[in-house]
Nucleic acid binder design. Structure first.
Length: 469
DNA sequence: GGAACTCGCCAC
DNA sequence: AAACGTGGCGAGTTCC
């Protein structure tokens, strides 16, 4: 029997959450300001060098000819005008506002000397101005105090600002190192990150209860992303014996499975997947794309399995006809929702119907979302919100234990499914055990609708070391 | 000179 | 028919 939390439960969670987060805000995170200043200067020098290099190029001469005194190489409006109007290049993609896009993806497809420098400069500027400069601006007495809000997000997730603690670079290793090296624990302490494993997928399963999905989540030896990778890349087996297995799995997870959960469709998936394995959008010849262990290429493998091109999508009398790789991914999409995760799909349909009948939706955590919503929003909001509420519950219990037991360790931040603490080394094991107990025992005991095994992964950083390994 | 907008891009 | 969900922020731009 599934018992939803009540609105009073939801209120209590937020009420306690605001206070626990306020304590984390007041505590703050130590910041190495001399380091920020040093790196800022270094980045400025590199940016200046790149700027000088750019100003020697043909593209810049054209820029000055067109814009005269108004020339600004950081204006994307000017860049768009230059490339797509003056030079008459066909825009590889468009912005939401209908202009030719000048983001990295678009520029990477344009063969004009100089645009690569623009992309490089942008990356350095972002690290310098959005992160290091913001840390310097927001610091007091060697600490930053990021805000964590619970009143700004439609899904009842949190947001963070001044500075935003929830978007500090992680994927880009260069940017990660530079930015996270600025953040430290208190003297003699260590920063500790606690990450929920596959939290949103776990919570989605509490809504739809799809048996195949539940089996994946309960059986640690199974691997949904790897199984999908086998299907997409047509391998009977795909494991460590194939060096590319990790890459193919990663491509599948980020280019198919997660986008599908968010409501994307095979057309976008196919583009992303092809890009990831370096296959072009047109015809596929032998020897294209990433190399496989036997020295052959991924294109050979697809061709041998009857997929000879990226393909097209055409509308014929109201019916969509896909060909090539697009058709292949379309078939996998159909199989994904109509066979593999059929029950999940039925839940999605029911959930949208229910919202449209009632005009609002109720989360398992007791929150109500109302207002006009699109299909994908209706499906995603309850999952995103409830997943965060599991984190907030854990955060609150840790805060409570911290005060009751007079820990020297402190909660300092949170990133949707990750808790960040500043921990005294002697308390580390106790803090870790407490966190595991809350997540494994107290959380499912408090919320009986949790029917999946929730886990956190604990990562401890060096004593007196920064927030990066 | 500030508000509100677009764009690009960082996180989950 | 629809077609990736949630934020914050810096820079450029437009409008008042």
């Amino acid at each position: 029997m599934q018992i939803k939390a009540t609105m009073a439960d939801a209120y209590k969670l937020i009420h306690e959450g605001i206070q626990a987060l306020a304590r984390a805000e007041r505590q703050g995170i130590r910041i190495d300001i001399p380091y920020c200043e040093r790196v800022k200067k270094r980045l400025t020098r590199r940016i200046n060098r790149l700027e000088r290099k750019f100003k020697e190029m043909e593209l810049y001469r054209l820029w000055e000819k067109v814009f005269r005194a108004k020339t600004n190489i950081y204006s994307n409006d000017q860049l768009s005008y230059l490339l797509y109007r003056v030079m008459k290049i066909e825009p590889p993609k468009f912005t939401a506002g209908g202009k030719g896009a000048t983001d990295e993806e678009a520029l990477s497809q344009i063969d004009v000397p100089g645009v690569g420098i623009i992309v490089k400069i942008r990356k350095l500027l972002r690290v310098r101005d959005t992160y290091l400069e913001a840390f310097i601006k927001e610091q007091t007495d060697g600490y930053i105090h990021p805000f964590f809000n619970l009143h700004t997000v439609r899904t009842f997730r949190s947001s963070s600002s001044d500075p935003n603690f929830q978007n500090i670079p992680k994927r880009d290793k260069d940017a990660q190192k530079i930015c996270r090296r600025a953040l430290f624990p208190r003297p003699g302490h260590r920063l500790v990150s606690m990450d929920f494993s596959a939290l949103e997928v776990m919570i989605s399963a509490c809504y739809h209860k799809d048996p195949n999905m539940l089996a994946y989540l309960r059986d640690k030896t199974s691997d949904m992303h790897l199984d999908m990778a086998k299907q997409i890349f047509i391998f009977d087996s795909l494991d460590r014996s194939i060096p590319a297995h990790a890459l193919l799995r990663q491509a599948t997870k980020n280019g198919f499975v997660f986008p599908q959960f968010y409501g994307d469709y095979y057309g976008n998936n196919a583009r992303y997947l092809a890009d990831w394995v370096k296959l072009p959008q047109g015809r596929w010849e032998r020897g294209m794309g990433i190399e496989l262990p036997d020295g052959s290429h991924i294109s050979d493998h697809f061709i041998a399995n009857g997929i000879k091109e990226f393909g097209t999508i055409k509308e014929v009398r109201g019916r969509t006809i896909a060909t090539g790789f697009l058709k292949h991914v379309q078939e996998i999409e159909n199989d994904f929702w109509n066979r593999r995760f059929k029950v999940y799909n039925e839940w999605r349909k029911r959930w949208v119907e229910e919202y449209r009948k009632r005009g609002y939706l109720r989360m398992l955590t007791g929150f109500t979302c109302s207002g006009v919503m699109k299909k994908n929003e209706i499906i995603n909001y309850p999952i995103q919100g409830s997943a965060f509420h599991c984190l907030l519950f854990t955060f609150n219990r840790l805060d409570e234990a911290m005060r009751k037991e007079k820990w020297d360790s402190r909660l300092v931040g949170q990133i949707h499914d990750e808790i960040v603490m500043d921990v005294h080394p002697d308390e580390f094991e106790h803090v870790e055990r407490t966190a595991h107990r809350i997540v494994r025992k107290e959380l499912p005991a408090a919320w009986s609708w949790i029917i999946v095994p929730l886990e956190i992964e604990v990562e401890a950083f060096e004593i007196d070391g920064p927030w990066v390994k």
